[in-house]
């Protein structure tokens, strides 16, 4: 056996000694889907950044009791499972990330720096919604938390005569709460009702807010 053959044989022998388990296909496909979503979000962010006018943020945060279910017409939103600290693009330059503490909303300042605010899940009563909005005349980004034992499958925003579905984001496992976000192309001037629905369509919670307060 010459040197090349000896080396090839030794490499094969060394490689053959490696224990190889079952292919983690589900994990790899999940990872692939996550990369794909990230690429898509980055492309959206680039487009948004190109047209974004520096915004002056107006925010509010509130927790309210349930109110009647609004009519909803949009399709159900998918629930996205994210890792703690994983950035979620909200649109208009805003991002969020989740941790065991709650939802961190990151908004850009006019100076180019960012401001990070925490919406603590511990401050949201069970079965209730807390939401915040950041926007300007060009539109509004909504983000919030629903805390409850059931995993919602849909969060709907009813604004005047319009209805839109929010995206639902949650941490792995059963954290007992979800975050949601929506990008509205309208300035926040009308009354709004946020409704959280379970898998069977039943309303789990609702939050109503009138005017610009």
């Amino acid at each position: 056996m010459n040197q090349d053959e000896s080396l090839a044989a030794a490499l094969h022998e060394a490689a053959a000694g490696v224990p190889v388990g079952t292919a983690p296909t589900a994990a790899v496909m999940r990872q692939g889907k996550m990369i794909r979503r990230r690429h898509k979000a980055m492309r959206s962010a680039v487009v948004a950044a190109a047209v974004l006018v520096p915004a002056v943020g107006v925010a509010f945060s509130a927790t309210f009791d349930s109110s009647p279910t609004p009519p909803v017409s949009a399709a159900s939103a998918a629930v996205k499972v994210v890792d703690p600290g994983e950035r979620v693009m909200l649109g208009r330059g805003k991002t969020m990330w989740l941790s065991g503490q709650g939802m961190f909303l990151v908004t850009p300042n006019a100076s180019g720096s960012t401001k990070e605010r925490l919406m603590e899940v511990a401050e949201v009563p069970g079965g209730k919604i807390s939401a915040t909005a950041v926007g300007d005349d060009a539109g509004t980004v909504w983000a919030g938390i629903y805390r409850g034992p059931e995993k919602p499958t849909r969060v709907a925003f009813s604004i005047g005569d319009r209805t839109m579905s929010a995206r639902i984001v949650t941490l792995p496992g059963r954290p007992g709460w979800v975050a949601f976000h929506a990008d509205d192309t309208h300035a926040r001037t009308n009354d709004i009702t946020i409704t959280v629905q379970g898998a069977d369509g039943a309303m789990l919670a609702s939050l109503a807010k009138s005017g610009k307060g």
Binding site: P24, A27, V28, M29, Q31, G32, K33, I35, R36, H39
Partner: peptide
């Protein structure tokens, strides 16, 4: 191997 296959999945 897992990272490479995840990227392969993205451009399957």
């Amino acid at each position: 191997a897992q990272n490479a296959l995840a990227r392969a999945y993205v451009k399957w």
